[in-house]
Nucleic acid binder design. Structure first.
Length: 599
DNA sequence: CTGGTGCGATTTTTT
DNA sequence: ATCGCACCAG
């Protein structure tokens, strides 16, 4: 029985880990080791406090976070010694519960989870005139569901939509949570069973809970109130999808016995970066008392660059990337010898990320990087579930998996599949996928993803594996497959960057109007605070070097924007940065290949 | 039914 | 600037 992991924790972390009874709120700033603390706490509960892992539930928002936590717990608890606690996203845990209990609500246990595309189709059948209308409708319905408390009347087509779902034995993502909530509210026996089972509940990113998720946690928390939540009000950036920071700020009101612990030592970034990020976010009013610090080496000053336009911005970043690769050649990525931090200034492509507010900003960056021969990947670029061929696969699999019910299939395919399912009942998922790729004309990316996703199920016969495979598919397990070790610069939105870290970070488009983003008119005070948090999140992704860029003018959605520097830049004290201006470079009219000369 | 054309909208995103 | 969609013509 080893608890040596305790030695690697700082006093605050250890305090959080060793607190095992009653409600606990851990206020964990960016990069303060919150996942480590959470996982150690679970290990401690099991190894030291004698809690049965079966009595522990850990809830996260993303599958990545759940996966990460599982890995670390498995490591801390030892492979075979203990079973794993229930660790999963809100949605996956709810889906699991519903697989057991949903008959109470009048659905079949083999209900399907609709993707966005399928929701749209459903709405159009339910009476939406056009696609945009269905889109708007869906947005309203989802917003309505995510703010469950404000009973401001259901949006148009709401009841039609819900009826159609039920009629097809289907749910959408929002309903996964809402159904479980309803189950618990209306059926005390079921609630008591789960309450009795999950005696210790841990919630990650508590500041991001929307009302249904918040209520779910509240209702499921038993009389012992062994509820541990972790979060950071300064990283609340999802108000637009119903998250309410107030849940976090009010924790002690909801659970008066709650203890509050703060993790304030940042292990990720240089003191310069931590300080600057703090200075920016401390202008907010809606936050929790907390100060982040780092005792790492002071580090480079932040560079603030003023450039002419988005093209110049991209080019400057590209050339900077080349410099950071270690000087003269940019072919280091072929060799694996270069480790981040081994030799200051020598980074690999995957050590660097470019962050922006709007997806629309990615294009010029991609174009320029391609010209410069810099490999890059756009994170959360294409969603696999939006591919038409993947969609087809999904309905085919559904058809094969269940009683044929409402399979919406082109007749021709239906015919070939019936024969397929007859002849293939003894064969493997692998074979099935091969067959499917023929029938659906899958493109290479889709096929590769499908194969990767099927990997865990390959040794089962498809009769047993298909339902679980399909279930995974519906919960969107597909987007896991991006390779985090890809030798490429990462391009991503500031939102998508949350939870990630990179030695070198470029944040671009830091102009008034873009950051904070003013869609139409000027943003409200609340919105500005949220944008400021977003900028804070972006800054704290950087470990060693941080570059902040703003352009004097920028073409966005086809028309030019004026470019005052973002007011957020004013909040950083001068000692922490070095500012440079890139003068307009007179370019001969020839556009092609012109840029190559720069490198 | 299919391909061309023109119009409008275009934060941020997970599951 | 770009993309997707609705609509229309063949």
């Amino acid at each position: 029985m080893s608890l040596e992991f305790l030695n690697e924790l700082n006093p605050q972390q250890r305090q959080a880990v060793c607190h095992t009874q009653g409600p606990l709120m851990i206020v964990a700033g960016a990069g303060t080791g919150k996942t480590r603390t959470l996982t150690c706490r679970i290990a401690y509960l099991v190894r030291e406090a004698g809690v049965d892992p079966a009595n522990i539930l850990a809830l996260t928002f993303t599958r990545r976070a759940a996966w990460e936590m599982k890995q670390r717990i498995a490591h801390l608890l030892g492979e075979k010694e203990f079973m794993l606690p229930e660790i999963g996203t809100f949605h996956s845990v709810c889906a699991k519960i519903l697989r057991e209990e949903i008959s109470v609500l009048g659905y079949d246990r083999d209900f399907v989870i609709l993707t966005e595309e399928e929701q749209i189709d459903l709405l159009r059948e339910a009476g939406a005139k056009s696609r945009p209308e269905a889109n708007a409708c869906l947005k309203q319905i989802s917003a309505f569901k995510n703010r469950r408390c404000a009973e401001t009347g259901a949006p148009p087509l709401f009841s039609e939509y819900q009826a159609a779902l039920k009629q097809r034995n289907a749910t959408d993502f929002d309903d996964l949570i809402l159904h479980v909530l309803r189950l618990f509210e209306t059926t005390p026996q079921i609630l008591n069973r789960y309450m009795d089972r999950f005696r210790h509940i841990l919630v990650d990113e508590y500041q991001d809970l929307n009302p249904p998720q918040y209520m779910l946690v509240r209702i499921l928390t038993g009389p012992d109130q062994n509820l541990c939540v972790v979060g950071d009000a300064d990283q609340a950036i999802y108000a637009f999808r119903g998250a309410q920071v107030e849940n976090f700020l009010n924790f002690q009101k909801d659970y008066p016995r709650a203890e509050i612990l703060r993790l304030e030592q940042n292990y990720r970034s240089s003191p310069v970066i931590v300080k600057a990020a703090e200075q920016v976010v401390s202008r907010n009013t809606l936050r929790m008392e907390k100060r982040l610090w780092s005792d790492a080496e002071t580090g480079e000053r932040i560079r603030i660059m003023e450039v002419g336009d988005e093209k110049q911005e991209a080019r400057w970043i590209a050339s900077r990337i080349e410099t950071l690769l270690g000087g003269t050649s940019m072919f280091h990525h072929d060799t694996d010898r270069i480790q981040a931090g081994e030799d200051p200034g020598h980074y690999s492509f995957s050590d660097m990320a470019v962050l922006f507010r709007l997806r629309a900003q990615a294009r010029p960056l991609q174009a320029t990087f391609e010209q410069a021969g810099i490999p890059c990947r756009l994170l959360s670029g294409e969603r696999l579930d939006r591919r038409p061929d993947m969609r087809q696969v999904r309905s085919l699999l559904r058809f094969l998996a269940g009683p044929e019910k409402d399979a919406v299939l082109p007749g021709m395919l239906k015919a070939s599949l019936i024969s397929l399912s007859k002849t293939r009942e003894q064969s493997s998922l692998q074979d099935l996928i091969r067959e499917l790729s023929g029938i659906c004309h899958l493109d290479e990316i889709t096929l590769r993803s499908l194969k990767a996703m099927a990997l865990p199920y390959l040794n089962l016969t498809w009769g047993t594996s298909l339902p679980s495979f399909l279930h995974d598919l519906c919960l969107g397990r597909e987007s896991d497959l991006f390779d985090p070790r890809a030798q490429a610069v990462t391009l991503l939105t500031m939102h998508a960057a949350k939870g990630l870290e990179f030695p070198v970070v470029f944040i671009c488009g830091l102009e008034e109007g873009l950051m904070p983003y003013a869609r139409d008119g000027s943003p409200s005070a609340d919105e500005i605070e949220e944008e400021r948090r977003l900028f804070h999140v972006a800054m704290t992704r950087a470990m060693k070097e941080l570059y902040l860029l703003h352009a004097r003018t920028r073409i966005l959605y086809g028309s030019p924007l004026p470019g005052e520097p973002s007011p957020f830049l004013q909040d950083i004290e001068e000692a922490l940065f070095q500012a440079d201006v890139l003068k307009k470079k007179s370019r001969p009219p020839k556009k092609e290949n012109q840029q190559l000369g720069l490198f």
